[in-house]
């Protein structure tokens, strides 16, 4: 299953953190920064799989023993880099690495459809939608939907009123989420 989904930008600021197990906030932050240091140092030509960061590598012996091919420990970190954002998935060995890459692709494409030409700013100002999209795809660490259309449809059903993309373009308007939930300006 998938243990966590993270999105952060090129300078390591988180844009989305979703842990499918309960973790302390401080531990979350440490994990993010550890993964960021790993990711940031990789050349673009390198492959999209990370070695486990020190925080997760505490039980090295648990990795795939011959008698028990799978277990509960996260063993796989897959990432993908889009423009200014890194998308990271931490998962156990039951997930397929290449399929996870595709999953990230679907996620990003879904966002792209929802926001029409998505950029980092969209995600900052509509991070609720971001969460909703992820919620359509992964529930409790289990992938429930991989079809792009269905994901988009699901989010739109929920949102009813689709997020406006000018929010991303003119952040100063502070429109935020339609429905009166304006997310004020001036916060990062």
């Amino acid at each position: 299953m998938i243990n966590a989904v993270l999105v952060f930008n090129n300078s390591g600021q988180p844009r989305l953190t979703k842990f499918y197990t309960q973790l302390d906030t401080s531990v979350q932050q440490r994990l993010i920064s550890e993964i960021f240091t790993l990711v940031a140092n990789r050349p673009s030509s390198a492959c999209n799989f990370l070695p486990l960061p020190p925080l997760l590598a505490t039980t090295p012996s648990a990795a795939a023993t011959p008698t028990q091919p799978h277990n509960d420990t996260p063993s796989l970190i897959t990432y993908r880099h889009y423009a200014t954002l890194y998308f990271i998935m931490i998962s156990t060995s039951t997930e397929s690495p290449l399929a996870l890459l595709d999953l990230i692709q679907v996620f990003v494409e879904a966002l792209d459809r929802l926001f029409e030409n998505v950029c980092e700013l969209d995600l900052i100002f509509n991070f609720e939608t971001l969460h909703a999209t992820l919620g359509e795809m992964i529930v409790g660490g289990v992938v429930v939907e991989t079809g792009l259309d269905k994901v988009v449809k699901g989010v739109r059903e929920q949102g009813k009123v689709k997020k406006r993309r000018e929010v991303g373009l003119s952040a100063a308007d502070g429109l935020g989420v339609v429905g009166g939930l304006g997310m004020g300006r001036g916060w990062r």
């Binding site: 973790l23 994990l31 505490t58 509960d72 660490g141």
Partner: peptide, 12 residues
């Protein structure tokens, strides 16, 4: 051992 030393993020 796993029970004693559970990894971070691990689902039991």
């Amino acid at each position: 051992r796993d029970k004693i030393k559970k990894s971070l993020l691990q689902v039991d």
